[in-house]
């Protein structure tokens, strides 16, 4: 009957992490940066997406009527808009409704009466096909009673482009950090292997199983990954709450997402990536430096 003490492996791993403290620190620091970057960029992209939706800019153009347009003209304009090819839906908002909405948000407009209303009616046009937006804009501008359009499609495009740039930078950053993380973990484990070279040699001669010999080193990788993940989680949480508070003070236009409901998900994600990286690093090192 064989019996292995599970604490043996953890203890060996901890001893070795302590013995090679500098490398352990470097491994955790780099892997942590990797996770913080993943977390930070993911949250940024997620927030961009949420804001894009809130703006409702994805497939909408807003059409503003002339200031002096009467009820009949407005009705005709709505009919004309509906008749266009690429139009899916039209929502008419009167200038009174728009003023009321603005009053609700900004105290400065409180005193303006309906007679003084500086706004005009608007039509929110939802279109079907993204690719035909320039045509639709031409058609809308030529309609009677149209004062101007807000071309939110361009804004959406800009935000999309920004998002894509962010994602590209993110990806490159991530690849580099990931490679550096792996490199450092591989070297940490290599050091651990070499400081236990004699023990490993004897273990092999007396017939210790390969898994028994390698498990402490894999656990080392797991511990590096897990510690990095937990620290990263708190860094990302802390930094996010600081940034969102600042953003909230600065502007009412941008919405920031409350990530508290996703705490478990974020932590699990970090743990998953961190531990996996640690294990891969250990395995590479074992394959390279432990010839059995």
């Amino acid at each position: 009957m064989r019996r292995y003490n599970p604490f043996y492996f953890i203890l060996e791993a901890l001893k070795s992490l302590k013995r090679n403290g500098v490398m352990t620190f470097a491994s955790v620091a780099v892997l942590m940066s990797c996770l913080v970057v993943i977390g930070g960029f993911s949250l940024l992209v997620y927030n961009i997406d949420v804001n894009l939706e809130n703006f409702g800019v994805m497939n909408k153009i807003e059409v503003f009527s002339n200031f002096d347009a009467g009820a009949g003209e407005l009705e005709a304009l709505e009919r004309d808009i509906r008749a266009l090819d690429n139009v899916e839906e039209v929502t008419h908002t009167t200038k009174a409704e728009r003023l009321a909405a603005i009053k609700k948000d900004y105290d400065a407009y409180e005193d303006i009466t309906d007679e003084e209303n500086p706004l005009s009616d608007s039509f929110e046009v939802t279109y079907k096909d993204n690719k035909k937006v320039p045509e639709l804009e031409m058609q809308l501008k030529q309609l009677n009673g149209v004062r101007k359009l807000t071309n939110r499609y361009d804004l959406a495009k800009k935000i999309e482009n920004f998002k894509n740039t962010v994602m590209m930078i993110f990806l490159w950053f991530l690849i580099i950090l990931f490679v550096v993380s792996l490199f450092i973990i591989v070297n940490t484990i290599k050091l651990a292997l070499s400081s236990r070279k004699r023990e490993i040699e004897i273990m092999r001669y007396v017939g210790a199983s390969k898994w028994f010999i390698t498990l402490p080193f894999i656990i080392e990788g797991v511990l590096i990954g897990a510690v990095s993940a937990v620290i990263s989680f708190f860094i990302v949480k802390g930094a996010y709450s600081v940034v969102t508070r600042q953003m909230g003070d600065m502007t009412q236009v941008i919405t920031t997402v409350n990530i508290s409901p996703y705490n478990t998900l974020i932590l699990l994600g970090f743990l998953g990536i961190g531990i996996l990286t640690g294990i891969i690093g250990s395995l590479i090192s074992i394959a390279k430096h432990l010839n059995t």
């Binding site: 064989r2 043996y8 210790a208």
Partner: peptide
């Protein structure tokens, strides 16, 4: 197996050196 150069673990006692060989193949304490 026994080698010319002994190959003992310097930081373990005589007892521990022998015990080590048993522990690593899962012998109960």
């Amino acid at each position: 197996v026994v080698f010319q150069d002994f190959r003992l673990l310097p930081n373990k006692t005589v007892f521990e050196n022998v015990a080590f060989a048993m522990r690593v193949v899962g012998t109960p304490a």
